[in-house]
């Protein structure tokens, strides 16, 4: 391999160090807060106090169920969700309260189905939640639930990836990104979308959602062969407008990542290293998965070019970082192993 890359690799390494030194600003938590705050404001205005108290009681059960499902305590999760279903059978709860509670409950139970690989049921419940959100949006003025609907579709992206239907996952994710970028009026689901509804959403929430879905794509691609990555990125390019001129986009940084990912998939090493140098220097920001996926590509490149030594510090450093995505641990171990062998 030519030595011409040495300088570029070194520059990328320096920008990685520069990026590490930057203050981290992780926003998924913040975006979740914005969403909850908006929703809570609406419910406190719209719903009678009794509804609010009742929903609070059973929403806690739903949330505890979700935590249990994440911890693989499936029987506890099942039990708590069953408990959380109680108010849906109560006459005293308003229709609006029921719709709201059911939508989030369907979503949470879909997660339990996902953990149990019951994918048909995931779709069934997600469809139900989407339909409930549409009613709440159109009839009760819950505009903010558009973001919940996007989150529900994001969950389907994850479901398709779990089912190894990577193309389907990437198509849906790309459509969602294109919609969030304001380039699509509708998505391929039987529900109303439109740019007007999107315009009513807080920009930082749109931006956080974009980062989240782009990160999902990154996660899907990291587990693929180079040929597959190339193929799947072509699908992304077909559905999204990827451009270097990104000033009008909702998340320019995620767009930059797509471009550098395209470059490495096309084996355009110069372009990848130049773009990665800029990208890594900006630090993790709100997209740790994109940052570490770039590092992974860079490590892979170093390995291909026989520059293993340079990559060792990064690999060892990455896995101990607080922001390192646990889903990527096995992928990084490969590079740590090289270190051990040497």
């Amino acid at each position: 391999m030519p030595d011409i890359y040495d300088e570029l690799l070194q520059e990328t390494f320096l920008s990685y160090q520069q990026g590490c030194a930057k203050n981290h600003h992780i926003s998924p938590q913040i975006s979740g807060d914005i969403f909850s705050e908006k929703l809570q404001t609406l419910t406190s205005i719209n719903l009678p106090l009794y509804d609010q108290l009742l929903l609070r009681r059973y929403d806690n059960a739903r949330e505890q169920g979700l935590i249990a499902a994440r911890r693989r305590q499936l029987a506890v999760a099942q039990q708590l969700f069953e408990e959380a279903r109680t108010p849906l059978e109560m006459d005293k709860l308003s229709n609006e309260g029921k719709l709201l509670h059911q939508s989030f409950l369907e979503q949470s139970e879909a997660y339990l189905d996902y953990r149990q690989n019951n994918f048909e049921q995931v779709y069934h419940r997600t469809d139900a939640a989407l339909a409930l959100d549409v009613v709440l949006q159109s009839e009760y003025g819950y505009d903010i639930l558009l973001m919940h609907r996007i989150q529900l579709l994001h969950n389907l992206v994850r479901t398709e990836a779990r089912r190894m239907n990577f193309e389907k996952a990437i198509i849906l994710a790309s459509e969602l990104l294109n919609y969030l970028d304001g380039n699509l009026e509708s998505l391929s689901t039987p529900h109303p979308w439109g740019s007007e509804a999107l315009a009513k959403q807080p920009q930082e929430l749109i931006c956080a959602m974009f980062a989240q879905i782009a990160s999902e794509i990154a996660l899907i691609l990291t587990a693929q062969s180079r040929n597959n990555v190339h193929h799947l990125l072509k699908i992304v390019a077909k559905y999204m407008h990827l451009s270097a001129n990104n000033c009008h986009l909702c998340h320019p940084r995620a767009h930059s990542w797509f471009l550098l990912k395209q470059a490495i998939a096309q084996n355009n090493i110069d372009s990848f290293l130049q773009r990665a140098t800029i990208f890594l220097a900006e630090g993790i920001a709100d997209t740790p998965l994109l940052w570490y996926s770039t590092i992974l590509d860079w490590l892979d490149l170093c390995s291909r070019l026989g520059r293993v030594n340079l990559s060792q510090e990064i690999a060892a450093d990455a896995v101990i970082s607080n922001y390192f995505p646990r889903q990527m641990i096995p992928l990084f171990h490969k590079y740590l192993h090289i270190k051990k062998l040497q």
Binding site: R72, V76, E83
Partner: peptide, 15 residues
């Protein structure tokens, strides 16, 4: 009923 159902579920989930 709620308490015992939670307890039963916790027994089943012991890993």
């Amino acid at each position: 009923k709620t308490i015992l159902a939670r307890n039963d579920a916790a027994s089943l989930d012991d890993k």
